[in-house]
Amino acid sequence: MSLVEQEDAGALATTDAATDSRAARLMKRRSRIRLYEVAIWIAVIAAYFVLPSKMLILTEIAILALFAVSLDLVLGFAGIVSLGHAAFFGLGAYVAGLLALHFVAEPVTGLVVAGLITGLLGFLTSFLILRGSDLTRLMTTLGIGLMMAELANQMAWLTGGADGLSGFSLNPIFGVFEFDLFGKTGYVYCLVVLFLGVMIMRRIAFSPFGLSLKAIKSNAMRAGMIAVPARKRIVTAYTIAAVFAGVAGALLAQTTSFVSPDVLAFHRSADVLMVLTIGGTGYLYGGIFGAILFTLVKDALSIVTPQYWMFWIGLILVVLVLVGRERLNRWVDYLPKRMAGREDDR
């Protein structure tokens, strides 16, 4: 800290070496692992031991979190509002389900295949969201989401139509870890995948690529003027996001041994937007915080009013926006600073 003040006093007097090392340290500070990150991972691991009877809802949270984190790459980094992110989630679920039903019952293989196929869909559809305004992007993403849902509905011979896809069971993970009745293996499995997913996306977030995405979101015109090829970057980001959304969907199919047509429903796309909004966009962990809060609230609501919880979710959304997302998310802004402090300048 004292170094900063010294340099304020005489920027010209400092040697190159001192400035350089300071610049390097400043840059490293950005990608430093924060305390809250460690805390959240400890908490979710502790949940395994503390809440043995809540494995199913914990699994649900982990899956929703991965789904939301994948959307963050599109929304929080690239700044694209999507109303159809469930298209990838649902496709991943169906791919994993069909794979287990007809070909391979090994879960990790299923995840990889689901990720690859949804990634392909993401890549192809990304070209449709490149041009036009927010409005056309909303229309396109919503349209693609609905189209996938309709497709699943029409191809009943493959997907089971409105009845969904069932009757498959999964082999032990890598042939070793068997899924148990209480969902313990399932939770650990989802947690490991979530962790890997977040770590990969975290790496991406602090790369030049991640920085360029934020630049596009912040000021697309200027980004172009420092040679950022916005379209290429959006295609890549959208594809990566689709892969992880697909993996999240595949996890759902694998842990529940069931794929309902609901995986492609519009409300799922809306839910995940809401999750991310509650948790905060642009720093990845918002997806996890949001998933925890959202799932708990939704769970409580569906116990109180099984049929009309949608009303309350809607009300929460309206209030959330009127109160102001920024004001609500400010705690998240403070959190990293307060908890990570500025100890790194020492």
Binding site: A270, L317, V318
Partner: peptide
């Protein structure tokens, strides 16, 4: 988000 909220409320 706001208008989706309104939609959800009206649907329910």
């Amino acid at each position: 988000l706001f208008s989706i909220g309104i939609v959800f409320m009206s649907v329910a």
